[in-house]
């Protein structure tokens, strides 16, 4: 057996390192959110700056199309008060069913054209987080700027659906189409 097959070094060093690292893992602080928690919180905030046409359905139905990375973060908003009503959560099976939503989160750009065609001009605030979505007709595109989240707005898409977006939100947008 070649000489360099000597037993490995003492492993207490390894364990000490692990112990050290273990001590440093702290539970999530109240103010820190994961990316998708923050995105769910944004979905809850956007309606405050948007007016739906008077003819649209009552209620505040926040929806996400599969695949849905928001998961439990979105569910945690169920029953929260928003704009004189309470939030309901739904995961519509197809774009046509999503016409009943006030807000629709679209995570997947693969079938985007199909989804937007299915929604037609229904008064649904569409929000997506894949690059180029706003240019393709999604009303709000969440973008990453390093560790922060920002957004772009496609105002003409919102107008087509009869939605009015407040100037306050437009000012915060990185780009407005």
């Amino acid at each position: 057996m070649p000489h360099w097959f000597a037993p490995a070094r003492p492993h207490w060093l390894l364990l000490a390192l692990l112990a050290l690292a273990a001590g440093h893992v702290v539970p999530a602080r109240a103010q820190a959110l994961t990316e998708y928690q923050a995105k769910a919180a944004l979905l809850y905030n956007f309606p405050k700056f948007v007016e739906w046409p008077a003819s649209s359905r009552p209620g505040m139905l926040l929806c996400a199309l599969a695949p849905d990375p928001l998961g439990p973060a979105l569910d945690s908003l169920q029953g929260k008060p928003l704009k004189n009503t309470v939030v309901s959560i739904a995961r519509p099976a197809n774009p046509t069913a999503a016409q009943a939503c006030q807000v629709l989160f679209i995570a997947d750009a693969d079938n985007l054209d199909r989804v937007l065609a299915g929604l037609g001009n229904a008064p649904v605030l569409t929000v997506g987080d894949e690059e180029g979505m706003a240019a393709r007709g999604v009303m709000i595109e969440l973008i990453r700027e390093g560790p922060r989240i920002a957004f772009k707005i496609n105002l003409s898409a919102a107008r087509r659906a009869g939605l009015t977006i407040s100037s306050q939100l437009l000012k915060l947008a990185r780009e407005v189409y």
């Binding site: 999530a28 919180a41 945690s76 929260k80 939030v87 989240i149």
Partner: peptide, 17 residues
């Protein structure tokens, strides 16, 4: 889980995630 309804828009945009 944190109460996601308690975060204001400006805070969310300033936050590092």
């Amino acid at each position: 889980p944190p109460d996601l309804a308690s975060f204001a828009l400006e805070d969310l945009l300033r936050m590092e995630v």
